[in-house]
Amino acid sequence: MEQPSAEAYEATHVHSVYNAIAPHFSSTRHKPWPLISSFLTAQPPGATGLDVGCGNGKYLPVNPTLHIFGSDRSENLVQLARAERNGEVVVADALSLPYRECSVDFVICVAVIHHLSTRERRQEAIQALLRCVRAGGKVLVYAWALEQGTSRRGWDEGSEQDTLVPWVMRSKGKPDATYQRYYHLYREGELEEDVVAAGGIILESGYEKDNWWVVCSSKET
């Protein structure tokens, strides 16, 4: 059997899943993660930024003195971000971002690049984020960790890194529907390697609640 292209695979196991589960997914995603909130709160009034893969827009109102532009691949999630949070949002693919180069002060990209199914595409996505920030601008990237031994999912060092994670949607009066989302689970150090391969400089990095994160900037600074 012929292997589907990375694009076709992600269309089935990422894009169509998020569009189908959007309202249910959104209802479980309201609480901003503390580290991301403090990154946003530390930006000065009037700073401009992107939230690439903004989902239902939960980070857009965290600091109302910012000009923050959200984008997501899922039209249904973007509509929720606008309707529920009055977010300034567009529908866009992380690998074809519609922003002018070196234009914004910061970028956040939370729980997005682990949905890209090849390493090349993940590095390309980080490169695209780095291109959007001005000299000295910071990019914050979060991705799911392989090492989450204490989580109910039970993956840990040595588990398969490329995996399908079921999303079970329960709705009243209907049988449960299960959707399989593709994830690449990042092992320790791998996110930093991808940032360096994308031409970035690591400013800070760490682990928070089942995720690896980095704050990076582009090399020209």
Binding site: E7, S71, R73, E75, V78, Q79, R82, V89, V90, V91, A92, D93, L95, S96, P98
Partner: peptide, 18 residues
């Protein structure tokens, strides 16, 4: 041409432009 509907612009490209 990128359509704007209900205040949301859509930048997804047809496959021949990606």
């Amino acid at each position: 041409q990128y359509a704007v509907k209900e205040g949301i612009a859509n930048f997804l490209l047809p496959s021949h432009l990606v």
